[in-house]
Nucleic acid binder design. Structure first.
Lengths: 220, 220, 220, 220
DNA sequence: TATGAATGAGGGTTCATTCAT
DNA sequence: TATGAATGAACCCTCATTCAT
């Protein structure tokens, strides 16, 4: 867990209380990162020039280097911030030690909340994480993914053991199914739309758990 | 002649439907496109240099321009070829005028077959189509997407009307759910793996239709 | 900072009519354009590499793109600036509504002054305008040429009507004769040489009007 | 006078009688050179790709290399052929040892005949000779130019001495005036137009010798 | 004689980055 | 903090040329 700059550690967990910090710097930093994330998400990391980010932020390209070491460090900070917060949420859920079905429900809901909060970051993660993972600097992505997989797989397995989830399905396949199903939503989700993250979570869970087909009425 | 031919021998022998004449030119063209698609899929279109493609093909960067107009035209041909074939398959399915449930089953199965055949192209489509669609040249992507949406939505609606699919779900949400669920598979699918496309389709359909939860045994 | 400044100090201090404010930017721009024009004129536009221009300007090739959009846009600006100034001069002459002979004299003199001021641009115009005119971007060349032709032809015709110019010559031929005769001078003219533009104009006019042959003494 | 290929010497003087030679080769060679010259003249040597020439000739770029060593050798042969023929004509004129006025008349007429015969070559010469002259390979251009200058200057000087040409003009200026005046005609001349080369020569000579102004009627 | 395919040396251009002000 | 100008590496692409067939 090398960190490019020290400043980073400081605002990793300042999401809800904004202006509380006296120094304006972290706020500006966050604004710039949000701007960058938005552009990265829309155009792709590679296709995004530093100039475009600067344009959106109303400054010149060179000026960004007063705030950040490099384009890549911006990307890193965006993804790290997102993942840190995601795991805060997940860890809280896991700490509650609910049953498998409730755990799954809670994780999915938490995921949609993160999509709501970090839509851009999630979209970036989706598109870029695979080839970024190759770089040493982004090893934390791989690590997070591993934790992620472990968390979900074990939840699913607990569910199968408890006869809450079907046993006739390939667990890895199910895992991918659930995982993708949730996260890809970031590609079309627009915060402030007609569905709240919780409402979307409810519908998704309903589909994932019970399917989209009407069940044949059993006997009656 | 490095990796190119490896990927080649696998799905390279598709010209069964196209030109029976084994003219060298089209073959070489296809080989190069397959190579390019592989690299595009792995590293992203923007991050892929023409040089890298040429390396994989065992030639120099400039030599590619004997066969193609530009890097972009390679991308275009890759996507077009894929979509053309996809719609061949879909249209055949639709022409059969099956019931909604069977149509959905057939479309999903066909989709996984396309993923099997054009994994790289699908992955590229997934990652790049959004921002490519802005360009006039790639307008066909938008058009295809529109047809796609219409096809799936109407199938789902027919199913709801026929009381085959649940009526309590937002249809657009369901559409996105099913669509994404299927296509994202391209991001992890590896042809020649332990599951055949049909087997994966079967399991996916089972999850999508009936959910992953065990149904509370009625009566007993 | 090699040759650029040499050529500069010579005709570089022209901004008397433009912006009195000595903002650095426009000056730099002009310096670079003068450098580029010099190289274009000497080696031909196509044979001139952007790197050569940069070398002459004492910078790297890429740096030119901070100031200009492209090599072509440099060419465009060079030609446009020249033609704008040329027409400023011509229009002033025409506005004076002199007789045909005086008009011709004034136009020729003005032309040599422009050659003196914009020798490089004139040389470029001479060599490249024909095939540039095909491009939409350089349509202004064709337009200027049309105005040019109209101006000269009408002056000649007025002169013929007024029995100042010979009537036994093909007017178009005469037009080309005068036009070429003047402008080709740019190919050998060197500013600061032994003849001032006005002196050259005088001699040229003498040849054009009265010929190089000694007239048979008419009776006396 | 180095020559790239031997074949060259053979068709230097075959212009009028085409198919007389048994071997078709030289004819093909000449055709290709004519094609090349046309394209060079229209688009400029540097802007002309070998492919364009080949297109015009109905073959592939590589095939030209069966006939010629290089693009540059084509250019060389085009210019050499033209200059050889030009000097044939000039030398004939000079051998006649006419008076200065008749010599000038004959040289100008001969020049227009060459323009008629080798329009493309003349245009190329006009545009490219300056920067080609720097290359060792094209030293013959400089040499020819020197001879040219000597010929014209001495003719003019003889004329001044014989009180046939005006003495009040700078001879070098007059030389350039006459020279340019004639040759630039290649830039607009179209063979087969309404004026024959001889007719154009006559009018040009009239302008050059007597001017375009009406002489003030002396006494009467 | 001509083709098809490839080479390899640039050429124009982009862009992340630097740095003096 | 931000700007303006420049760097330098890399990128896409072009093109004269080669060569086996």
């Amino acid at each position: 867990m090398r960190r490019a700059t020290d400043a980073q550690d400081h605002n990793g967990t300042v999401p809800t209380k904004k202006q509380s910090q006296v120094t304006a710097a972290p706020t500006r930093r966050r604004e710039l990162l949000d701007t960058a994330a938005e552009v990265f998400a829309e155009q792709g990391y590679n296709a995004t020039t530093v100039r475009k980010i600067a344009d959106h932020a109303g400054m010149l390209a060179g000026s960004l280097y007063y705030h950040f070491d490099s384009k890549e460090s911006m990307l890193e900070e965006i993804l790290r911030t997102f993942l840190d917060e995601l795991w805060d949420g997940y860890d809280t859920v896991l700490a509650a030690e609910l049953g498998p079905r409730e755990t799954l429900r809670a994780l999915v809901t938490e995921s949609f909340r993160e999509i709501d909060r970090h839509r851009a970051a999630v979209a970036i993660y989706q598109k870029e994480s695979r080839h970024l993972a190759a770089q040493q600097r982004f090893a934390f992505l791989t690590e997070s993914q591993r934790k992620f997989e472990k968390t979900w797989l074990s939840t699913l397995e607990r569910g199968v053991a408890a006869e809450v989830f079907r046993a006739d399905l390939d667990v890895r396949l199910t895992y991918r199914f659930v995982r993708d199903t949730v996260w890809v939503a970031a590609s079309w989700y627009r915060p402030g739309g007609q569905h709240s993250p919780e409402e979307i979570a409810r519908q998704y869970l309903s589909m994932v758990l019970d399917g989209i087909a009407i069940r044949p009425q059993p006997l009656t």
